[in-house]
Deep mutational scan, measured.
Amino acid sequence: TTLHFDLDGKKLQYTGVSEEIARLVEELKRRGVDLKEIVRILEELLK
């Protein structure tokens, strides 16, 4: 799965993300978590 974000005018793309992580990101968005925080979490998970 590939995730795309537009953060402060920067286009971020994460490829090869598992379905689980993609679902987690969608859930965080639904809960109103700040996009910067979501990206920070995502980068930690993908290390």
Rank of each mutant, 00 (worst) to 15 (best):
T1S: 09
T2H: 06
T2W: 03
T2C: 05
T2V: 09
T2S: 07
L3Q: 01
L3C: 03
L3A: 00
H4C: 06
H4L: 12
H4I: 14
H4E: 15
H4R: 05
H4D: 13
F5I: 07
D6I: 09
D6N: 07
L7V: 13
D8R: 00
D8V: 02
D8W: 02
G9N: 04
G9W: 02
G9S: 03
G9M: 02
G9L: 02
G9H: 03
K10P: 02
K11L: 05
K11D: 09
K11A: 10
K11E: 10
L12Y: 14
Q13V: 15
Q13C: 07
Q13M: 15
Q13A: 13
Y14T: 00
Y14A: 00
Y14V: 03
T15C: 05
T15W: 06
G16P: 02
G16K: 05
G16T: 03
G16Y: 08
G16S: 06
G16H: 14
V17G: 01
V17S: 01
S18C: 02
S18M: 04
E19T: 10
E19Y: 14
E20N: 05
E20T: 10
I21C: 03
I21R: 02
A22P: 01
R23Q: 14
R23T: 14
R23D: 10
R23L: 14
L24Q: 15
L24R: 15
L24G: 10
V25P: 00
V25N: 01
E26L: 15
E27P: 02
E27M: 14
E27K: 12
L28S: 03
K29H: 12
K29I: 12
R30W: 12
R31H: 07
G32K: 07
V33D: 07
V33C: 05
V33Q: 08
L35V: 14
L35Y: 05
L35A: 09
K36W: 15
K36A: 11
E37V: 09
I38N: 00
V39H: 04
V39I: 13
V39G: 01
R40N: 09
R40W: 14
I41L: 10
L42I: 06
L42Y: 01
L42S: 01
L42N: 00
E43N: 09
E43C: 02
E43K: 03
E44C: 09
E44I: 13
L45M: 13
L45E: 11
L46W: 05
K47P: 08
K47N: 12
K47D: 07
